[in-house]
Design a protein around this nucleic acid. Sequence first.
DNA 1: GTCTATACGAAGATAGAC
DNA 2: GTCTATCTTCGTATAGAC
Lengths: 192, 192
Amino acid sequence: MADDTRDRMIIGAAGVLAQRGLQGTSFSEVIEATGAPRGSIYHHFPGGKDEMIGEAIFLLGGSVAERIRAIEATRPEQVSDEFIEGWREFARATDLKAVCAVSAVTVGAGAAAQGLLPAVASTFASWQDALAEAYARTGVTKADSKRLATTTVAALEGALILARAQQSMEPFDAVQHDLAAMARAARRGRST
Amino acid sequence: MADDTRDRMIIGAAGVLAQRGLQGTSFSEVIEATGAPRGSIYHHFPGGKDEMIGEAIFLLGGSVAERIRAIEATRPEQVSDEFIEGWREFARATDLKAVCAVSAVTVGAGAAAQGLLPAVASTFASWQDALAEAYARTGVTKADSKRLATTTVAALEGALILARAQQSMEPFDAVQHDLAAMARAARRGRST
DNA sequence: GTCTATACGAAGATAGAC
DNA sequence: GTCTATCTTCGTATAGAC
């Protein structure tokens, strides 16, 4: 079935990444999570673990960017609301046991695996760009949109971490509320 | 010299944690970073790695909470400004190679080391409480202060991650600016 | 594509000498 | 307090059979 196994492993890796961190994402874990065969790991990923992780980041990054681009908002707070809402569902679905896989790679990329940093950097950048465009389409100035997009991603990533640590959805409530207030203020031309 | 070695290892562990993540913080790394002797690890930490990590979180958590409590602000945006400024210095000092050690533990705590989650949860909570009190002292309502404190911590943690990924201080600029705007709005009684 | 076998290193942890 | 030696487990990675 073509690259079915490879795809399954990539998706599985993204999931394990979010729950166990970069170094916790061993081939054994991915295989256990996906039921993929042990014997063909290096057939599917000649580049080893880094290749698998890189693909997982790429996949997740693209799907989130896509979701942002699909937001049809007329008011700026709808942008932040829908963005956060998507991650809220993710948090619920994983029972507050997972953070963002891209964050996990960023945090886990020490001296080793530093080759993955460019991939996470451009993934975050793609989210920031997509969010900035979405804000701009609702009438926020370009400069404000860009800044707001960065704050939106940062607050979301932090909320995921706080939510996991405290096993609570409250960080999402706080961040969603405050981002919406910021977005509204930006449109009123009040943010400096 | 009493517990000099132990203390050095705890401080060193916090540093390694921030740069290499939880699983990257091996005894070997801590020993290399601090010059501590190999032979007495389990003399100083009978509880093994978890004990060392726990102490590092406790130490860092206390020092940051202390710093927050020392903020003397008359206007709410001074609270977020000074808080972010402290972390900005940290980012500069580590050459954008480190994130928050508490985040690192949260992200790295998978199935194993879940015993550390309560420690990180209460550490984050202590920062939230201290920030909420600081906001409240400047005239922000209790509910707004609490919510703002959560958003402040979340945005900061996210900014550290973005900054590391993209090797840029720009996330700090964005977050600092937007948090200040939110804080000002809260005092004006404009935040819903 | 998938298997087994295997090499190699690093990690956490313990025991006992000094 | 600090050392060395050792055990066990687990990780990445390779080789070669099926």
